[in-house]
Nucleic acid binder design. Structure first.
Length: 591
RNA sequence: GGGGUGGUAGUUAAGAUGGUUAUAACGCCGGCCUGUCACGCCGGAGGCCGCGGGUUCGAGUCCCGUCCACCCCGCCA
């Protein structure tokens, strides 16, 4: 390079008039007037206009003439006022650089899409040319926000005395929870490392080792199917502390989040966050991650339904299920019959065999596929129970408890959005506490750990472990933001006897527990402090803070829904020598 | 594994009922233009209509299969 860049494009203002500067960056656009050539030059700080005037610098002008989108140039020139030609849409619009010298550092191929904030290019194309997509403002801002967030997280935790400690990526498979990614061992034929689903056991061992306060911004891996908010590798802010109760962990996380939202988004969030038990969250809002930016609680009409004339309702109750109602205030006015049918069809995906509904028109008349099954009295009782007003729309699900809650909980979120009950600028946090220790796995006919198998029970529930494990509540807590779970943690079991019992309840035999977690069980026996912690999903946090619809928008190089990277074309085949060395035979898929 | 949406120039889209040479905008190329900033004007190039099969005199369009991307269920904290 002939010159040395000394100024970022986006930083120039009227006060810099008269300065001689050297700027470098990408050609955003070019406007050739035959005489003067105008170039918008972009770097990560913004855009500045360059003017190439043949009467000022003939050589530079004749080269500028041939500049095209995304060419990389370095330019020396004088900052001059634009006079009457100010561009109010650019922060640098009061000035321009009258170019004296220009060096083209790199010509660019015509990009497949323009580098602009608003494009509607298919994600397929954008992912293939991720390096170009990442030049665009929205992605630059998202990654900038991400970097700021991790900075604030580190600073806050360091100030609180947490140590950033690393844990291995090549680990042992502990087949519990998600499917592991495996790494074959060359030295040990037929044996495999597993990539961590989270550093759970290792951070607990740090507590046993006396480090007292640990954190790590840790990459985690889970080989499961993807969603808009799920990638095969993702990042957790992983935290663990000794000699603590849930409140201590919550306090720390509240400070972290408060600082993050203040410093990155200039949002003041109120602490302490409200708390709600799992039972209340699910009972009232259907989901264990309630979006509390709007009301619309569920109404339990099981008792009424048990004795009603509508067989679908009555028999659901008879089989041990429940019936709940979700009333959308004024929803009947704005929702057409076709839209209702559509909503019903879409939400049956959560397992409900059907979703009944009643619309009460403005004139008080009822419209519904089910009212004909009820007596006058029943209808009156029902309206009373759900508080049905003119213009309302109410939905019902009658099924097993979990199906009813899941379906109506998701329906509630849909209606909240449809009816514009949600303020997009609000950040609503809530702690959900007292999760059940176990959930029943119908397929495998055994209990599973709802959080993970190292979670301690609520002390007053510990005595129930023997008889009714389903009733045992855990010292587990989730932090929920706007209806998305952004983190979860618990107080851990620090007693090897209790840990062994929990494994037993989970259907893991002594031998199995020994084989999988023997080292950990042994470690617990050497003096373990009571401890607990939490992990925040960094990707989701950044996604919510930046208002992006997908975590792909806050991850530099994300994978597609089928786990491929369109830019690098991973995963890919490897040579037979490589496989041989790893003692691996590839068995082709059937068909 | 299942349900849904989409795939036509580089990009985004249009292309009723099957029918002449597949349109447009932006981008690209050439020319003109000294105050543009969505610059403007004139001209031009650019297509395995995702892929494979089938029906038909004839398929971008209809049928079957398949691949890819996205959203969702299952799965996954």
């Amino acid at each position: 390079m002939q010159f040395h860049r000394d100024t970022y494009c986006g930083t120039l203002r009227a006060e810099h008039e008269g300065n001689e500067v050297v700027v470098a960056g990408w050609v955003q656009s070019y406007r050739d007037h035959g005489g003067c050539v105008f170039i918008d030059l972009r770097d990560r700080t913004g855009i500045v206009q360059l003017r190439f005037d043949p009467s000022v610098a003939e050589g530079a002008h004749s080269v500028a003439d041939r500049l095209r989108h995304e060419d990389v140039v370095i330019v020396k020139g004088a900052v001059v006022s634009r006079g009457d030609n100010t561009n109010d849409r650019l922060p640098t619009g009061a000035i321009e650089i009258s170019a004296l010298e220009l060096q083209v550092l790199s010509k660019a191929k015509t990009p497949p899409f323009l580098i602009e904030d608003d494009i509607d290019t298919a994600e397929l194309v954008r992912l293939k040319y991720r390096y170009l997509d990442l030049r665009r403002g929205p992605l630059q801002e998202a990654l900038l926000a991400r970097a700021k967030i991790t900075g604030v997280v580190r600073r806050t935790l360091e100030e609180e005395g947490f140590l950033d400690l690393e844990t291995p990526i090549l680990l042992k498979s502990t087949p519990e929870g998600a499917r592991d990614f495996l790494v074959p061992s060359r030295i040990h034929p037929g044996e495999f490392y597993a990539l961590p689903q989270s550093p759970q056991i290792l951070k607990q061992i740090f507590m046993i080792s006396g480090f007292d306060r640990y954190y790590q911004i840790a990459r985690c891996f889970r080989d499961e199917d993807l969603r808009a908010d799920r990638q095969p590798e993702f990042t957790q802010v992983d935290v663990e502390m000794s000699f603590v109760e849930p409140d201590d962990v919550m306090d720390i996380i509240e400070s972290v989040l408060t600082n993050v939202f203040k410093e990155v988004a200039n949002k003041d969030i109120t602490t302490p966050f409200p708390r709600m038990t799992y039972a209340d969250a699910v009972g009232t809002y259907g989901l264990d991650r309630p979006d509390l930016r709007f009301g619309m609680p569920l109404t339990d009409v099981t008792d009424w339904a048990a004795n009603c004339d509508f067989k679908v309702f009555a028999s659901a109750v008879e089989r041990g299920g429940i019936v709940k109602a979700l009333r959308a205030e004024g929803g009947g006015v704005s929702t057409s019959r076709t839209e209702i049918d559509r909503i019903v069809k879409d939400h049956c995906a959560w397992g409900a065999r059907g979703i009944a509904w009643i619309r009460k028109n403005e004139d008080g008349s009822l419209q519904s596929p089910i009212v004909k099954f009820f007596s006058e009295t029943e209808i009156a009782e029902l309206q009373e129970a759900v508080g049905l007003q003119n213009g309302d729309l109410v939905f019902f699900v009658a099924d097993q408890t979990s199906v009813v809650h899941n379906t109506l909980g998701n329906l509630r979120n849909t209606l909240g959005r449809r009816l514009n009950l949600i303020d997009d600028d609000e950040f609503n946090f809530v702690w959900v506490t007292e999760f059940p220790m176990f959930e029943w796995d119908e397929d495998e006919q055994r209990h599973n750990a709802m959080h993970h198998p190292f979670t301690a029970p609520l002390s007053e529930d510990a005595s129930l472990l023997g008889e009714t494990p389903a009733k045992v509540r855990a010292l587990a807590y989730d932090v929920v933001l706007n209806g998305t779970e952004i983190g979860g943690g618990s107080i851990r079991i620090h007693d090897s006897e209790l840990q062994a019992r929990v494994f037993e309840l989970l259907g893991i035999s002594k031998e199995e527990a020994e084989a999988r977690f023997g080292f950990f069980m042994e470690a617990l026996r050497y003096g373990t402090p009571p401890h607990g912690g939490i992990a925040l999903g960094l990707d989701r946090l950044v996604m919510l803070l930046t208002g992006k619809p997908s975590i792909r928008d806050v991850i530099a190089f994300p994978k597609t829904q089928r786990g491929t990277c369109l830019m690098t074309e991973s995963p890919g085949p490897v040579g037979s020598e490589q496989l041989e060395e790893l003692h691996i035979d590839v068995v082709p898929d059937d068909n």
